[in-house]
């Protein structure tokens, strides 16, 4: 059965996108972003998603918050409830008022995480077959998963992220349907590998170099998998399972350590039920 979600996304045009600070190993503040190129790549991603059958809603761009384009980190959405992220880095905390204003205006019920807990939204929490899997360590606190569970009613599992290069869970895991997922074990500790192994009957496990190409940071719209890169081995397996692979160029966004999944926030997720 195809994924129950992934047909409606929130995205933010890269009007103010740049690499202004370094909060992950991919970011180099001296690297310039070609903003025209970024625009072109972003527009192309929107077109690809739309063509695959998804709708795209727009988060208004704002100055001085360059990572606002990475909407996956806006928070966790479940039905009409929106739980804003609590960013670990002060640089990104500036985004939260823009996120909250957007979701309030869109009529969502905004529920805060308990004080003192960091969690970076869908970047560190992805639903798979009725379970919300949450990554922790670099950006999110493990206790936040328990809070998300009680706020959404979802059964959760926590997985420790151990490789700083794969600093968000969505760089290591991509649900394809309710039996299959792209997995990057490189990013998980041995306990996490066992937890995912128990949950996912048919994993597509990435080699380390494939994981570092951000193959898991893909967006799935029905049978279409929109990827930042796709080595033949991975593509063959996906096609054997009946998926259509579309590779999009997101090289400008990779300068900030983000791929297609980071640029999107699925709005049609319903957790816990």
């Amino acid at each position: 059965m195809t994924l129950a979600w992934g047909r409606r996304f929130l995205m933010c045009p890269p009007l103010h996108f740049e690499v202004a600070y370094e909060i992950n190993p991919w970011m180099q503040a001296e690297v310039r972003v070609d903003r025209d190129q970024a625009h072109e790549q972003w527009n192309s991603l929107v077109a690809t998603l739309t063509e695959a059958g998804a709708e795209v809603e727009i988060l208004e761009p704002a100055p001085d918050v360059p990572d606002l384009v990475f909407t996956a980190n806006a928070g966790v959405v479940s039905g009409t409830r929106y739980i804003p992220s609590r960013f670990r880095h002060p640089e990104r905390r500036l985004e939260t008022p823009f996120h909250v204003a957007h979701f309030e205006a869109a009529g969502y019920e905004v529920t805060e995480l308990p004080e003192g807990l960091d969690h970076e939204g869908a970047g560190d929490a992805l639903p798979f077959a009725g379970t919300l899997i949450s990554g922790y360590r670099w950006r999110s606190d493990i206790e936040a998963a328990a809070a998300l569970a009680s706020l959404t009613g979802a059964s959760t599992r926590s997985v420790e992220l151990v490789d700083q290069r794969l600093y968000h869970f969505d760089l290591t895991f991509c649900p394809l349907d309710d039996r299959r997922a792209i997995c990057a074990p490189l990013g998980w500790d041995s306990y996490g590998q066992r937890v995912i192994g128990d949950l996912v009957p048919e994993p597509l496990c990435l080699e380390n170099d494939e994981a570092l190409l951000f193959c898991a940071n893909s967006v799935v719209v029905d049978q279409t998998v929109v990827m930042p890169a796709c080595p033949p081995r991975v593509g063959n397996q996906l096609e054997a399972w009946g998926f259509d692979v579309v590779v999009v160029d997101v090289s400008e966004f990779l300068k900030a350590g983000g791929g297609p999944r980071c640029l999107t926030l699925a709005l049609d997720v319903v957790l816990g039920g």
Partner: peptide
Amino acid sequence: LEGHIVDSLILPK
């Protein structure tokens, strides 16, 4: 230690 510590293998960890 509180949460989904059994299924997530956090307790044994």
